[in-house]
């Protein structure tokens, strides 16, 4: 039981796909201008990942290893097409906002990374749990970034006004910058900094410098700045 729990909860913070494994960053940033599109994207990713991990794990003994990537891509792409068609049929407005990013789940390295790295070597139940956990870890970051960008960029959350806007007599002036691309980079960068300040074991080792000098030790700090 404990190992099951580990598959599910380890990727949430300790081994988060975005902040540690560096997977699935592309789509993570683009859909986070507001919470609604981010939530839609999260649900799409969770469904695609769980189902395709389950399928691939179930047939893993029958896949010849030379063509395994093509088979994985085909399974994932079929799932994504289904999701895309469902969104276009019932949630047309959201699917227009998400534009190509739902389709791009196909090349989302998170999905491929987990099917290739985990589902190909493990049973169906652990694979599904692992996929769920990783998709949830991904969703966590997306929801966090999207909440910040929507609140500060438009003063709303899920479309509900949260901060009184200046144009309606309130005090809050929306920051247009939060709706632009660079802000997503900054928020994720600062978020990683925050997580690593608390969980210091996640800090990356210093690289060897170019001119052959020794890498500075991880503990040395400069006084002042």
């Amino acid at each position: 039981m404990t190992s099951w729990r580990r598959y599910l909860f380890e990727p949430l913070l300790n081994n988060n796909p975005i902040t540690i494994q560096m997977l699935g960053i592309c789509s993570a940033l683009a859909v986070t201008t507001n919470l609604k599109t981010a939530l839609t994207m999260c649900i799409a990713v969770i469904v695609v990942m769980t189902v395709s991990s389950g399928i691939i794990s179930a047939i893993r003994h029958h896949i010849p290893s030379s063509i395994r990537l093509i088979i994985q891509i085909t399974i994932i792409a079929s799932m994504v097409i289904v999701i895309d068609q469902i969104l276009q049929a019932w949630f047309f407005e959201i699917s227009r906002v998400l534009s190509i990013f739902v389709s791009l789940i196909v090349t989302n390295c998170l999905v491929m990374g987990r099917t290739e790295g985990f589902a190909m070597h493990n049973g169906v139940v652990p694979s599904i749990l692992d996929a769920l956990g990783n998709a949830a870890g991904y969703s966590l970051i997306l929801i966090f970034v999207a909440s910040i960008r929507e609140i500060l960029g438009m003063g709303t959350l899920l479309g509900i006004p949260l901060l009184p806007l200046a144009e309606h007599g309130g005090w809050f002036e929306p920051m247009a910058f939060m709706q632009k691309a660079p802000s997503a980079f900054f928020i994720i960068g600062l978020l990683i900094w925050g997580i690593r300040s608390i969980k210091t074991e996640q800090v990356e080792a210093a690289k060897i410098t170019l001119h052959g000098t020794l890498p500075m030790s991880a503990t040395s700090r400069e006084g002042g700045s």
């Binding site: 660079p182 980079f185 600062l190 900094w193 990356e204 410098t209």
Partner: peptide, 28 residues
């Protein structure tokens, strides 16, 4: 940047994101 002193938690991925953000601002 490999030769600079950077706060521990920011080293690597964290700073990479922030730099990309700055370049992105320039391009915008």
């Amino acid at each position: 940047l490999n030769q600079q002193r950077i706060p521990d938690g920011l080293r690597g991925l964290g700073l990479a994101f922030i730099i990309t953000g700055l370049i992105s601002m320039g391009f915008s």
